[in-house]
């Protein structure tokens, strides 16, 4: 299932320095890379920007060339109804299977369905996919993010 549902997420180390986010987004814009989902984690001095983009290879290479530290990791995404309890359903399944969620964030698009991105510890990745799938939740294939 991993090969079918694993989505490449890029994590980028950012100093909390004026203009750095602008430089990053400008680099992606110039390479015509589209950001599909994002989240920013931060401490007082630095942050990590997490991105799911339409072309991860290209994004990674232009960001590295521009001097950013980039790490690629696997995440998965699910589609739930955009109504109370949608998020709960997924988290409950993972929790019952004793899988810790490192972090999660939502897809930027609209519509009546919500797309949620989940990062779990790598050793639990396959198990998480299985649990969610068996729990009747729709897993989103990478083509949803990568396709233009």
């Amino acid at each position: 299932m991993r090969s079918q549902y694993a989505i490449k997420q890029l994590s980028i180390f950012l100093e909390n320095r004026k203009g750095r986010l602008k430089e990053l987004t400008e680099t992606l814009y110039k390479a015509q890379v589209n950001i599909r989902a994002l989240a920013l984690a931060e401490s007082a001095e630095f942050g990590i920007l997490r991105l799911v983009v339409d072309n991860p290879e290209k994004a990674r290479s232009v960001l590295s060339a521009a001097g950013f530290t980039v790490k690629e990791q696997s995440v998965f995404a699910v589609e739930v109804e955009d109504k109370p309890g949608g998020f709960y359903q997924v988290v409950k399944l993972l929790s019952e299977a004793d899988i810790n969620v490192d972090y999660t964030y939502a897809f930027v698009g609209g519509g009546d369905r919500a797309v949620l991105v989940f990062k779990v510890p790598d050793e639990n990745f396959d198990k998480a996919l299985e649990v969610v799938y068996k729990g009747g939740i729709k897993l989103v294939e990478p083509i949803f993010f990568y396709g233009s």
Binding site: S11, A41, F46, G47, I48, T69
Partner: peptide, 15 residues
């Protein structure tokens, strides 16, 4: 400097 050899993508490990 945080380079690709130490950056795991995880905020906690950097802290």
């Amino acid at each position: 400097e945080v380079d690709e050899r130490i950056f795991t993508g995880d905020l906690g490990s950097l802290e």
